[in-house]
Design a protein around this nucleic acid. Sequence first.
RNA 1: GGCUCCAUAGUUCAAUGGAUAGAACGGAAGUUUCCUAAACUUUAAAUACAGGUUCGAUUCCUGUUGGAGCCA
Length: 628
Amino acid sequence: MENLKELLAKAVIGIFQTSFNTAITSEQLTFNDTPKNFTGDLTLVIFPLLKYTKLNPEASGQAIGRELEQLDFVESYNVVKGFLNIVVSGKYWIDFFLGSYQNENYGRPQPKPTKVLIEYSSPNTNKPLHLGHVRNNVLGYAVSGVLKAAGFDVNTCNLVNDRGIHICKSMLAWQKAGGQDTPESTGLKGDKLVGHFYVEFEKILQEQTKPLMEAALEKNWEAFSNTNITPVETAVERYLSADEAKKDDLLDAVKTLVRNATPVMQEARTMLQQWEAGDEAVVSLWKKMNGWVYDGFAVTYDALGVSFDKTYYESNTYLLGKDIVQEGLDKGVLFKKEDGSVWIDLTEDGLDQKLLLRSDGTSVYITQDLGTADLRYGDFHMDRTIYVVGNEQEYHFKVLQLILKKLGKPYADGLYHFSYGMVDLPSGKMKSREGTVVDADDLIADMIATAKESTEALGKTDGFAPEEALELYQTLGLGALKFYLLRVDPKKRIMFNPEESIDLHGYTGPFVQYAHARIQSIIRRYLKENAALNAPEIENLEPIEKELILKIAQYPAVIELAAQELNPAKLVDYIYELAKMYNKFYGEVSIFNDGEAATQKRVALSALTGRIIKEGFGIVGISVPDRM
RNA sequence: GGCUCCAUAGUUCAAUGGAUAGAACGGAAGUUUCCUAAACUUUAAAUACAGGUUCGAUUCCUGUUGGAGCCA
């Protein structure tokens, strides 16, 4: 069935043709949902059309309304200022409902030919996942779900940062601690164990930095006998001679150099070189420790319910991109400086010059990303690539896309940085050094524990089998967490208040889950006395029933909108509103005590609402229970 | 220093340039012989400041103030 707005738009275009002798397009028509305190189902905004009607707003609205009223699905109209409120006939809504109820694909648009690749998650293997990753994963999953629901051909991938100096730090600290600890021997989850040694490395580094720092500030260069002291010396001189205002920054610069001069950092760098040279012992330790991390990540991913069609590893991709740099040099897009380093000049685009290859021929981060982009295009031939990455990397992606464009890559225009905001805590930003990071596993466990506590306090699971109860607590805990993260516009930074996130009342996942459980309860009761849910015969609609149908009717447009704006919050918010409307309906009418016809109608309304809640939440990765 | 983003009830979030700025939590007052009260109903409470564009601005433009991020 054609949707109502299209139907009305067609009619209004016809009216302008015949009454005003003007050709207008549907883009010029603005239809809004009529606000509560006015009479109507849909509102046409008249103001933009005044130049064609050559009448005042009131008269224009009346003129269009009079014609619309002739249509069989329009019951009446009223004009308030420049707004034409249209009341659609009850019969239209009854037919609409029956059609949707019997259409198993209600809300699922036609497949679209566009191929989309979404990269998300992309963790480092030296640290366990934290709240920031949780937002990334939940958003990545939800965005891919929304695009799939809108009919796109979607694949997902993960790019694991499994190499580099940071991994060597964990490996080194593990060796220094005796090289015996394993997840089994310590009872720690693999990623936690490796993360622990990363922290241990930092401790050693700090211990070694402190005396060296003092030596540097006293210009005692003997302590730096085994390194090149010139940079440190320069930095110290600049620090000592600077004005007060700049001292802090310059001291940080000194500290960075001193940290790099410590023996333990030198060891880590040596280890990285050995890894790059394929040293057997180093590579095998690297494989072992990364294996632990992957086992640990798998547990967290599983709890979050996310998965990927393909996983890429930086250890396989970090050397890529150099060919592309050569290609760029040949095409004259890139240039070489005297020291042999390769650059791109982006000053025309309002940016500066960016380094792509160092003078020693090694890559920088963006070089790898160029290579990876090429690799993926070969694998997927996608029209669009969506990178789900935090907004602190906006500059990076701007540069990446510009370079690919200048290189004439066919996929450059399809790159999109899905840039989401940081997660703040009431205490401020999460900082690993200050220990204010919220661990993903702890967070999930807390949510489930709180769900359990509240549920048991209400006695809701009294008759449940233990495993059924456990499943419910997980459904509720994760539902609350995901809803909390998804209800906000992804572009905005989010304030994660632990107490609020765990709330099960109001604008939350469990609120919606509760509505779904009530619906299932209704259906269970109905099926005790009836063989199946049949299409009802509907004579008339109560106002609240019509309101619910109006809400249901918005579903397909919401899916399209959420996909178009890449904003799962639009869908999540809609499903909440639908559940809220259902609760109101549930409170206002009696489903089983108003006669057979009313029961059939209201059970059918409940069932369709339930289907949409389940499907809509499923799209963004939130499951709903049948009982709670 | 340069660039980018943000500012809405006490708090956390909404609002394709459209009507009397919506929710939720928290506050106040109610609803249970009947389908699940994790619910429902009523109520008080907000567009940082100053200009401009427009029939109409929370939304667009300029400046101010305050906050965040990136680049060196």
